[in-house]
Amino acid sequence: MAIISETTRPVAASFAGLPLRTWQTLGVALVFIVACVLPFTTSSYHLFQLTMVLVYAIALLGLNILTGFNGQVSLGHGAFYAIGAYTTAILLDNTAIPYWATLPIAGIVCLGAGFLFGLPALRLEGLYLALATFALAVATPQLLKFRGFEKWTGGVQGIVIDKPSPPAGVPLDSDQWLYFVCLAVTVPMFLIGWNLLRGRTGRAIVAIRDHPIAAASMGIDTAMYKSLTFGVSAMYTGIAGALGALAAQFVSPDSFSVFLSISLIVGLVVGGIASIFGVLFGAAFIVFIPNIADQISKAAPWAIYGIFLIGFMYVLPTGVAGGVKRLGSLLGRMGKR
């Protein structure tokens, strides 16, 4: 009976005199303050990278909602990122819609696309869904190049878009402005995600992952939840794609190859499967590691990605977030003594 007493022992509720929740709040606040100060201290290239961290964090959150929390494995989220990016680019290229208004449109387009892909995906269990989404990822660049759509997509050439400039009177350059636009999108997206996953809906989503049959017998409409989760997940990733297009000022088919989808998987694994704030680590990882590793060889980032993918599965299957959590409870236990 030693096992039971071990697991029921209350996990560290406090550390160094303060409740753990306070530490959490303080941590989030600190991250937010740092996020607000950083753009004034770095070069424009580093600022671009920080912007991309935010972009990928949103995309990863979307992927995590689907794969981490709902258990539907997607190897093809790059496709939804691409749809979001192209929606924004096409709208900016062909209409007078302001850039900020393209973001919700990109979100809605991807919500629809995700929902539609989610419908057949309902019939696909784990491995087969991975297979179908992998096929989606591989086919995406070719579809974007398709001559029939060239009028809008610009074919192989892609579309060049203008960088949004700050409104008159705001003392920021356009890089800083874009960064804050991304931050202003990221924060509410995280809050929505947090609320969605912590509440009743989130429990249903997780229940479907852990035991679909039990979930159904408790009255959860699993089919509806699964397709909707697919849609919401695609929406997140699509909005990220739209922001990413603004940041890169350019979309072209070859930036959305299967390797984009794999990058997202890498971010998911490194940050932590089924962890909301872990995606920030994951996003930072996939933005900065290629930069560092590129100096070794063009192939090095991918070799490192691969090693991390396999290594994390063996050593730290809960990702960085899980590792931090474990460390936290360890420290808490020590603090209690």
């Binding site: 794969t67 258990g71 494995v73 190897l75 784990g126 491995l127 991975a130 390797f259 794999i262 998987i265 694994v269 499967i273 060889s297 063009k298 192939a299 090095a300 980032p301 991918w302 070799a303 990605y305 691969g306 090693i307 991390f308 993918l309 396999i310 599965m313 063996y314 299957p317």
Partner: peptide, 26 residues
């Protein structure tokens, strides 16, 4: 990872894909 959950196995295979691909490029 022989008996690991689907997601783990899929990720290990994707890792293998990426490593082989980059090794060849390298």
């Amino acid at each position: 990872v022989e008996n690991a959950p689907v997601l783990t196995v899929v990720i290990v295979f994707v890792g293998l894909l990426v490593i082989t691909n980059s090794l060849a490029g390298w």
